[in-house]
Design a protein around this nucleic acid. Structure first.
Lengths: 369, 369
DNA sequence: GCTCCTCACGTAACCGCTTACGTTAGTTAA
DNA sequence: TTAACTAACGTAAGCGGTTACGTGAGGAGC
């Protein structure tokens, strides 16, 4: 049953036309009578014929497949590389954009695989690729880019010649810290960073400084502690900050997981959040709204990252020579309670993200350059 | 650069051999001298040649692509259908198994798409498909199955003729409830179910009854309330249970989200968990360990579901006529604090799932029939 | 020395579709 | 009436691999 699939020849014969006509019927029916087309389509359906994808791809030089490459599908085991905490959101966005044009979505992990291997098993099967930021080094990226068009994610400032889609990490953090400064009048803020050399980590710290400087406050040269983007790293960071002689009013974390670790330490020391020390995160992972108090953080539009990445790819496929496009998406502050805000009165509607919170967009609106 | 890719002819010519030899070299090198093979491989690498996937697929009748179909990549908007809360875990398992044999992974959502559409855009591009439980109706499933081998997820008991991989929902719930009965001596348990007709919901309620019956307690015919697998549904269920005249000691929920809703209501009513009323969930979503008290629940081996689904598919591809295989994977009770257990002494190691908890496997070990 | 293998490789027929180009019949314009 | 189009379809040459089969050289066995 799974074998013996019909071919275009059989459909053509059964319908008394040529294979060209059948092919035309399947692809829009340009240059043929509506009547013939109807007949062809009918017999095709009747015979349960579906064109062979490989043959189609070979002849038309289009596979109808778009690929997305992550460093790893796992959730952030290696924080030095991109941790697809948002895997589902990104994929959903990508999937929708992809099926929207009738294409299919291929996903793969790059961890430990060479560019050549990927070229063989992925690039050779797709019309284009979306590469998550640090999932691949330069040489391997080149290897893939020489085969198919690619768009990168999170390479906004770089000199890479590919289309790019990024999130405004810097503006997002600045926005959040401004909330702390302006709404809560906090002044002594500590910053817990992620791994030193990651772009996200750097950008978020920069946003932190932006806010302080804009408020006329002294801005530190470096983070108060490095939490490595992990929960336990956040714990250690908190210990080191609390042990120091500096009296802090808030601990600003470069991601939610570290904020969770920080909060655990505060709780263990009988320090109240936010009364004694406010805590904020970044990412808006699902656990954040379930903490008590719920975590004030920054939400990234990962669904949109996925869908726009695919859009960029499709554009590039359509216009191979058009100039590079770089899109930066705005983030949104998710104001919950760990910053000191009171619980809003109304109960939220069904399972929404807006569980009684206020939102502010980072000043940087979606931008194309 | 992305154009003008070399073909096997050019490689053959440059190397002074025939295309057949090049092809042989690329596929293991059987029946040729090691020396020639080395030469071919060298010039191929030198020319940066990677075989055209479509041509290869057409000629060999193998795409080297495996597909996974979900109802939707979104997280459970429609609880009547499968909600891939575990999307990332499943995909990771599937991806590893797939990459392990050099294949690539295709993913797609079935929501709102016809079997014919899917056959066209997905089945035609893959060697086989993994279908999540209720992602497709019978007719559409048939349409796909007539094109390529498929394995289903969560159809263990059914008469569907396909290989299947399922999780032991029933045993998992039974195991958890036994913990409540035996370790905590609880007797008056309320059950909050998911949507009435979903297999998971039914199986979990059955497990609940199993435990009661095994303990010689009266078992209800139907759940105390239907929470529809959603947080707000859980809230309503809790209200109705607490309003009733029955004095319950514990509220057993068919999933974690409802448990979260239940806990919110208990908290609002100043009822302590677990002191006044214990609460348990099912699924072990990431938020569960961050609740206070942390949620006792049941963990499903979704990573393994993904990897074994692919394994089954690969087996079937190798042996098209072998008898149907149905695998049922055991779940694991994740004992945290909402059931009444005290927080274990030692601090957990780095970001592990084993955040100070005890685990018990559901009695049903992985089974093949 | 001759036959018969075996090994290593070349030849070429596909795989199932797309599409440039050719063909035919029917229309239109002069 | 006829040349010039045009619409609607057929012909067949690829697309870039795989692989059954053919072939020649070298070695083994007699």
């Amino acid at each position: 049953m799974a074998s013996a699939r019909a071919t275009i020849y059989q459909v053509a014969q059964r319908c008394g036309v040529s294979t060209a006509t059948v092919s035309r019927a399947m692809s829009g029916g340009a240059g043929m009578s509506v009547d013939t087309r109807r007949r062809v389509l009918a017999t095709a359906a009747e015979m349960g014929w579906v064109p062979n994808g490989s043959a189609k791809a070979l002849a038309s030089n289009r596979t109808g497949i778009l690929g997305v490459l992550f460093h790893d599908l796992d959730s952030g085991n290696d924080p030095l590389l991109d941790s697809p905490l948002y895997l589902d959101q990104v994929l959903r966005g990508a999937e929708q954009a992809t099926t929207g044009v009738g294409d299919a979505l291929l996903i793969a992990a790059t961890r430990g695989r060479s560019g050549r291997d990927l070229a063989y098993s992925v690039a050779g099967k797709a019309d284009g690729l979306v590469l998550f930021a640090r999932s691949l080094n330069r040489a391997d990226t080149q290897a893939l880019a020489s085969m198919v068009p690619i768009v990168t994610v999170g390479r906004a400032g770089s000199r890479w010649p590919h289309d790019d889609i990024s999130v405004d990490n810097r503006g997002g953090m600045r926005n959040l810290v401004e909330h702390l400064l302006e709404q809560h009048g906090l002044r002594r803020l500590a910053f817990v960073s992620g791994p030193p050399r990651t772009p996200d980590s750097i950008a978020r710290f920069a946003g932190f400084r932006d806010a302080l400087i804009a408020a006329g406050l002294p801005a530190p040269d470096k983070p108060d502690a490095d939490g490595g983007f992990t929960e336990s790293g956040g714990e250690q960071a908190a210990e080191s900050i609390l042990t120091g002689d500096r009296q802090v009013q808030a601990i600003v974390c470069a991601n939610d997981e570290m904020a969770i670790g920080v909060r655990a330490v505060l709780a263990a020391r009988r320090l109240r959040t936010p009364a004694d020390i406010a805590v904020t995160g970044f990412d808006d992972i699902s656990a954040s709204r379930h903490l008590s108090p719920s975590l004030t953080t920054v939400h990234q539009p990962m669904h949109e990252v996925g869908s726009r990445a695919i859009s960029l790819l499709l554009q590039r496929l359509r216009e191979p020579t058009k100039p590079r496009t770089s899109v930066v998406l705005a983030t949104e502050s998710v104001i919950r309670r760990s910053c000191g805000c009171r619980r809003p009165p109304a109960r939220p509607p069904e399972r929404s993200m807006s569980d009684g919170l206020r939102r502010t967009r980072s000043s940087r609106t979606p931008t194309e350059q």
